[in-house]
Design a binder for these strands. Structure first.
Lengths: 144, 144
DNA sequence: AGTATATACTTGTATTATACAAGTGGAAAG
DNA sequence: CTTTCCACTTGTATAATACAAGTATATACT
């Protein structure tokens, strides 16, 4: 990789976080803020097999942070905590029907926003950008 | 742009913010946290022509937020506030020599981190990713 | 000219997402 | 059967943010 590319990526990443943060953090989209959205997505993705510990590992967040976020989701009725039958300390988090609806609704809203931003992009650019983002995110995981 | 690309980008963006936030927000790199780094960069970039208002517009942050961040930078001696000669309410923010050194030092550290993450990427991927990020960030600005 | 409104900035206060530390109760290992 | 480890919760502190109120200057409108 050329130095120039690294310079560009480094700077644009810093800018991007700023933009995305102001887009999604202090203005929650629908019923879910960014953290709750991601957590709910991941709980749905893992489909009842993930507990607080596993999710905090996946997101590289402190377990206490995820514990609180999960409690918030449970309060709203979007997930339930199911005691692990073999390990009395652990729970698995399962998305409820309501949680699934909320997640879909939110995902759709976010996709609409993204779609509007990308309205003038070509198919090739969009495809390429998506794949590179996916690869970049995957790269983080390898590092830890 | 195809629906599938939008779906991918939407999800990967959410994940990316999580990753970058945990990388840069609660663990400041060197002497500067992410907000301070970006602000200092932008002050250097605008080279003594930007005030708090202009910067808060550029970052889509509340003016009070930028005011505090600028005050923090000033306290550390990284910038100085120069009264605008024609408008008694306004200041322009100028980077000091020390500020410039700190910025360079920080930028280099960040580039090293980014370089390590991207170590296995090809020149083409890196180039393409950088350009797409730049384009994406530019897209945000058009929208406002 | 004088008053009303708008603007650039600062400061006060509240919220939110996070980390770290301490506590609880169960699991695993010696 | 005791010690250590682990999953999770709860207490507390911090940082970045927004919103609201305040100050001083600038601009616009009689």
């Amino acid at each position: 990789m050329e130095k120039r590319s690294i310079e560009t990526i480094e700077l644009e990443m810093a800018v991007l976080v700023r933009r995305l943060t102001s887009l999604t953090t202090y203005k929650k989209i629908g019923n879910l803020d960014r953290a709750a959205y991601l957590l709910l997505h991941q709980i749905a993705f893992n489909n009842g097999t993930a507990g607080v510990k596993m999710l905090s590992d996946e997101f590289q967040l402190d377990i206490s942070t995820v514990s609180r976020q999960a409690a918030a989701l449970e309060n709203k009725g979007y997930i339930i905590r199911v005691p692990d039958p073999v390990d009395g300390r652990a729970y698995t988090l399962q998305i409820t029907e309501l949680g699934g609806e909320i997640l879909d609704e939110n995902r759709q809203m976010r996709q609409e926003i993204m779609g509007k931003l990308l309205v003038n992009w070509s198919d090739e650019e969009g495809d390429s950008f998506g794949e590179l983002l996916r690869k970049f995110n995957a790269t983080f995981l390898e590092e830890d």
